[in-house]
Structure formats: C-alpha cells, structure tokens
Design a protein around this nucleic acid. Structure first.
Lengths: 180, 180
DNA sequence: GACAGTCCTGACCGATCGGCCAGTTAGTCT
DNA sequence: AGACTAACTGGCCGATCGGTCAGGACTGTC
C-alpha cells in the first residue's frame, strides 16, 4: 500500500511546496498535489486536515526561524541591529529558499490562509531592525529595498553556489542600507 | 442606468487592479469585481471577453513600458547600460506602482494568464541590462538584487513622497550594483 | 412607430473545487 | 481466526467559478 520508502506524508509536503511555488496556493488544487505523488485526494486529506493545514505546515519552520531571528535582534543596540539583521535574514532566506519562492508567488493568499499576521509574511519587525530602528522615511525605504534585494536575489539566483550568494546578499544589502 | 460619471468599463478596471493586487488573480472572482462596482457579473462580461482579458488590459501599459525601455537600452554601451537601466526601471516602477503590486502578488498566475513570456513578468532583458550585459554569476546576482530592491522598495514605501522614493530607489540600486 | 445598436440583467450551464463518507486493504496482536 | 487500527480509495456533496444566453430597457435614426 505504500508508494515508496519516503513516507507519503513527506512526499505530499514536498510536492505541495513545489506546486505552490510554481502555481500559487490557489492555483494549485488538492487533486494536483495528489496526482503529482500518485495517490488519491482523499488519501491526502487523510494526512492533512485541509489545504490550509498543508500550507501552515510548510511555512512553520521558516516562520519559526523569522520569529527566532527577530527575538534575537531585540537585544541588539540600534547601531548594530541592521547589520545583524542582514546576516540573520540572509541565513534565513538561504535556508528557506523554496519557501521564499512560495511567498513571493503568493503574498496575498498566504495572508488569507494564515489569518492573523506575524511570521514571515508580516515583515514589520524585521523591517524595523533593517532600518536600525529608525522611523525616518529614508531608513524605512532602504529597509524595504534591502529586504527586496535579499529575497529576490536569493530567489532569482538559484543556480549559483551558496557561499557566493551568501556573501553577495549580505554585502549588497549592507550597501543598500549604507552600512559602513 | 449608469452608476457614476466615470464609464463603467474604467471602474471595472480600477476595481480589478485593486482586488487583484490584494487577493491575487485567482483569489479574485469576477463576482467580486462586479460587486465592488455595483453591477452584474454578466455586465462585466459584456465589457470584457474574459477574466484574463481584464488582466491583459491592466498590464498592457506597463508591459509596453518595459518593452520600450529594453528597446531603448539596446543601443547603450555596456559601461553605461546598467545605470541607464536603473533610471528607466525606477521611472517605470513609480509609474506603475499598483501594477507592480499586482505582479508581486501574482507572479505565477500572471505567467499562466499570459502564456508566452516577454514584458514585465519576464525579467531577462532588463536583468541583462542591470548586469551591464555581463554573464558573471556575481553580476547576475546583483542584477536580481537591484530588481528586488527597486520593486519591493517601491511597493513597500507607498506612503512616501515620490521624489524621495525616486532618488533613493535609484541611489540604492546603484549601490547594489556597485556603480560608481 | 419600427428598427438597430448599446448596455445591462437574472437565470442557467458544465467544470472544478475542498472536503466528507462508507468501505476496503494490509498489518499487528491475541 | 478474529478484532483492531492505520492507510487508502471511489464516489459523493454543496459551493463556487468563469462564462453563456435570451430578454428587457434605453437611445438615436429613419
């Protein structure tokens, strides 16, 4: 009755992540995911309570990672917080490249599926850190730009060695923020 | 029978752009759009051949703008093309802020609705220009980052004066690209 | 008034969707 | 062998979707 060595549940999660990234959450049906894995839709729903439960589970690690990062940054002094935020964010983005692609594909749907804010799709705490806790318009705008540079940089350059990407993301983001 | 002075067709386009940006293309139904404007879905379909036709029409100006930009950049020498690309892209992104938000919300669905590539959602020509026509991994990565910085910067900082945003987007993107 | 064109509508259609349900299968334990 | 459970399935359900259609209201022209 089992399809392969890897547990079906994990296969479903992998397929869902891939399809959600390509087609979006709403653009991917449960039948699409089930077909990809080679099981029935009802079998998929045996393992997951709902379509949304799949998404929540997929995003849980990256969400937890972002929460942990912003918690860690809480104790950083204002003159160091932006640089630390860049490092932490680059790490996170590289660890969760596929999820970032999903997020880029589905910003609106992710919020809908998640209801309340917080975590990866609510960038306010990380933006504040990137801005060095400044509320100046210029600092805020640069924070957005740094976030965009890191996320799209990581998402776009999928075929490059990780260490190069890591170094460039960090350095480029620091230049955006005009950190010495 | 008319709802207001503005032609219904324009109202439908405005409502669609707004809703598509918030909920995504697939996350927005024709009934949603019609309800927003206060007419029937069938009336909407009197004016537009299909849901996709609405999207295509919404994106036509920005698509044309991007095509025009990349055409213009074709004759720029390699040592100036990146800086010119930044300028042009910043202009474009500021002109089409709402559409950019739609694109960020719906990268996958936009491709599906558009079929063939080209235009705003296929960034290859602009990326090459941002990279100064270099195919080095570092240059490519920086081009992605510049694109991310400009687009997310513009999308995130929606409450700031345009001239500040313009200046910062251009300057920040140049720093990302390490342009002197 | 008759006619044609534009605009709009309620009702309808087939397809797809997320999710439910009763039944089947295979494995484990007594 | 029988009981139990986890895993899986085909068929079904109600809701929603994009789109169609026949008909009505309105306007302008002859």
């Amino acid at each position: 009755m089992t399809r392969s060595a890897a547990p079906l549940r994990q296969q479903l999660l992998d397929a869902a992540l891939c399809l959600f990234s390509q087609r979006g959450f709403r653009g991917t049906s449960l039948q699409d995911i089930a077909r990809e894995v080679g099981c029935s839709k009802a079998s998929l729903l045996y393992h997951f309570a709902s379509k949304e439960a799949i998404l929540v589970e997929l995003l849980a690690p990256s969400t937890a990672g972002m929460t942990e990062l912003t918690d860690r940054l809480r104790d950083e002094p204002a003159d160091r917080v932006a640089a630390r935020a860049v490092e932490g964010l680059v790490d996170l983005v590289l660890r969760f490249r596929r999820e970032i692609q999903l997020l880029l594909a589905e910003v609106a749907d992710v919020s809908a599926a998640r209801g309340s804010g917080g975590g990866t799709q609510e960038p306010e705490p990380i933006l504040s850190c990137l801005a060095g806790r400044s509320t100046e318009p210029q600092a805020r705008l640069r924070a957005w730009m740094a976030l965009g540079a890191i996320t799209l940089g990581a998402a776009g350059a999928t075929d490059q060695p990780t260490e190069l990407v890591r170094r460039e993301l960090a350095a480029g983001a620091r230049r955006v923020l005009n950190l010495t």
